[in-house]
Design a protein around this nucleic acid. Structure first.
Lengths: 105, 105
DNA sequence: ATTCTCTATGAGCGTTTGCGCATACACTAT
DNA sequence: ATAGTGTATGCGCAAACGCTCATAGAGAAT
């Protein structure tokens, strides 16, 4: 029960570190979206997307807003997108160094 | 086989988003360490720590250097620590808003 | 060659994850 | 009340994860 600092950090990062959730977060980069807009866009079952959104909200990185039937989710902390961008930076540099390695052979 | 952008991003972030690995990365913040220094510090089996280090190296976030018997691991990209720090920032803000919620009741 | 130290790997186990299908729930509209 | 739309949840399943114990490799030292 006693959650350590690393437990909480891991919970937040795990909420971001998954293919489907990254697709969702990329959509939410432009602003809030409802489930009905998201799941056709990324081509997954509505239930699956709903679970992912719920999970991210519980992890504290998404907000939830009800409007009639629809429920709109949005990114809560701008740091989430910064984290994704940093991961992209690592990815690109890694791809580059692998190219260098290729060329060296 | 065709790895998408999100697959690679997720692989990098997953390599960070785990309690034990966060402990290891925190140790590596001060510079390179060998397995023999790390596993007693975080109180896990040597084999377990070895696997985590190997996994992070394959994900591209750690470097590996051999020196006699010992093998030294180090953080390869400074962005890794930035990501952890951003997660901390989110964590603190969340903790704050939860306090506000508590006080509001 | 033997022994000692450090690291990696095989095997096994319980838990968690991500997914789809079907169904329940919430709200709106007629 | 009934039907329709949007969202959440129960269930089951295959795969991945994280861990430990035991063992194998690799290199140093005697």
């Amino acid at each position: 029960m006693t959650a350590t600092t690393h437990d909480v950090q891991a919970e937040i990062l795990k909420a971001i570190a998954q293919e489907t959730r990254l697709s969702i977060l990329e959509l939410l980069r432009d602003g809030e979206r409802c489930v009905c807009e998201i799941f056709p866009a990324i081509n997954y079952e509505q239930s699956n997307v709903s679970r992912h959104l719920n999970m991210m909200q519980k992890a504290g990185i998404l907000t939830r807003r009800k409007d009639g039937l629809k429920i709109f989710y949005a990114i809560k902390h701008p740091e989430v997108l910064e984290i994704i961008d940093l991961a992209s930076a690592i990815m690109k540099r890694e791809a580059g160094s692998r190219h260098d390695l290729m060329r060296a052979i």
